[in-house]
Computed example of a mutant assay.
Amino acid sequence: MSLNAHLQELKKKHANLSATVEEQERSPAVDPLTLRDMKKEKLRLKEEISRLGR
Rank of each mutant, 00 (worst) to 15 (best):
M1D: 09
S2L: 04
N4L: 10
N4F: 06
N4M: 09
A5F: 02
A5N: 06
A5D: 08
H6T: 04
H6N: 02
H6S: 04
L7T: 00
L7E: 01
Q8F: 01
Q8Y: 01
E9D: 06
E9Y: 03
L10F: 09
L10K: 07
L10E: 03
L10V: 07
L10I: 09
K11E: 03
K11F: 00
K11S: 01
K12D: 05
K12H: 10
K13V: 01
K13Q: 08
K13C: 00
H14Q: 04
H14C: 00
H14P: 00
H14R: 04
A15M: 11
A15I: 08
N16S: 09
N16H: 09
N16Q: 12
S18E: 08
S18C: 04
S18I: 02
A19Q: 11
A19H: 10
A19I: 09
T20E: 10
T20I: 10
T20M: 07
T20V: 06
T20N: 03
V21A: 03
V21K: 03
E22R: 08
E22T: 06
E22I: 01
E22G: 05
E23Y: 03
E23K: 11
E23A: 10
E23Q: 11
Q24S: 11
Q24A: 15
Q24D: 13
Q24V: 14
Q24L: 15
Q24W: 11
E25C: 08
E25M: 15
E25T: 11
E25I: 13
E25S: 12
R26H: 08
R26L: 07
R26F: 03
S27V: 06
S27F: 07
S27Y: 08
S27M: 08
S27G: 04
S27P: 03
S27A: 12
P28G: 12
A29S: 13
A29F: 15
A29G: 10
A29L: 14
A29M: 13
V30Q: 11
V30D: 07
D31L: 13
D31W: 11
D31Q: 15
D31A: 13
D31I: 13
D31H: 13
P32Y: 14
P32S: 14
P32W: 14
P32C: 14
T34P: 07
T34V: 15
L35Q: 13
R36S: 14
R36Q: 14
R36A: 13
R36N: 11
R36I: 10
R36W: 12
D37P: 10
D37A: 15
D37F: 15
M38Y: 08
M38R: 09
M38D: 05
K39M: 11
K39P: 09
K40C: 04
E41Y: 01
E41F: 00
E41D: 09
E41H: 02
E41Q: 08
E41K: 04
K42E: 09
K42S: 08
R44Y: 07
L45M: 07
K46R: 09
K46H: 05
E47M: 02
E47C: 00
E48V: 04
E48C: 03
I49P: 00
I49A: 05
I49G: 01
I49T: 05
S50P: 00
R51W: 03
R51S: 04
R51Y: 04
L52Q: 07
L52H: 05
G53F: 02
G53E: 12
G53A: 11
G53W: 02
G53L: 07
R54Q: 09
